[in-house]
Design a protein around this nucleic acid. Structure first.
Lengths: 131, 131
DNA sequence: CCTATTGTACTAGTAGTCTAGTACAATGGC
DNA sequence: GCCATTGTACTAGACTACTAGTACAATAGG
């Protein structure tokens, strides 16, 4: 498999947060499926050349947020989505996210058409991967 | 002028870096032209509700990188050699924004297809509004 | 010259991130 | 039972980002 994690030390984003983001991305676009095992904290720490505690912190936060399930002695796995959320709540979540996203994009001077184009492309890649 | 700068305190990216990024993007897409004056350090600090030193740090780093020219007592201005690699920067900006957006959505259990649908709808509304 | 406005410089303190090292706890395979 | 492997927990220290407050330096304009 292609390298799943890569850190950008020049971005200013904390490592543990980058790890979380990349797990979420991988889940969103199908590279990581429910039940898949993540690298062990020690292995990933070596791969990324960061400290064991940094990886552990990322895993712990993902555990709390329900993104993964950890079993001491066994490993860390992508959790079955607690997507029991009702349709109404989901719609509101999407709306709120979009508000922030578009506002952010506008602050960066990115036209909305570019966003649509890029997002559609990502979605297609994800679909291709899951079928 | 529309709000040129906006900070995202939840992104984990340092404020001073966000300021630099947004100046670069504004230059890249023409909202800031060579010779344009940036807000004063004090004014921007008030606008963004951050400390004077944080803005000063951003300006100082941009000065060093040749993005702006500062004149004590006068102001801070976009330097002549500031513009370069606009298409590349824009593409990276879109990509970074998307990464965060999708990861964020996934964290909320929102599938990527829903995002496409909602975003397309917004884009159509926006187009209808501007024509 | 005087004053307001601009950027600059410095100290001090708080909070968060990351590293380093060590030890403990639970699981699975033998 | 034994032991390797997994995640967890803790302390200590270095470093960075940010805030807060103060003072200084250069410029523009009356």
């Amino acid at each position: 498999m292609a390298q799943l994690f890569r850190l950008d030390s020049s971005s200013g984003v904390p490592f543990y947060r980058q790890i979380i983001d990349q797990v979420l991305l991988a889940v969103a676009d199908g590279r990581l499926k429910v039940g898949a095992q993540l690298p062990t904290v020690r292995q990933l720490a070596v791969d990324l050349s960061v400290n064991l505690n940094t990886v552990a912190k990322a895993y712990r936060e993902m555990e709390i947020r329900g993104i993964v399930q950890t079993q001491q002695g066994t490993g860390t796995f992508i959790a079955a989505r607690a997507s029991g959320g009702r349709a109404r709540e989901k719609r509101k979540a999407v709306s709120d996210l979009l508000d922030r996203f578009i506002a952010n994009a506008e602050a960066h001077g990115v036209p909305i058409e570019d966003l649509v184009e890029a997002l559609v492309e990502r979605a297609e890649n994800a679909r291709r991967r899951t079928t």
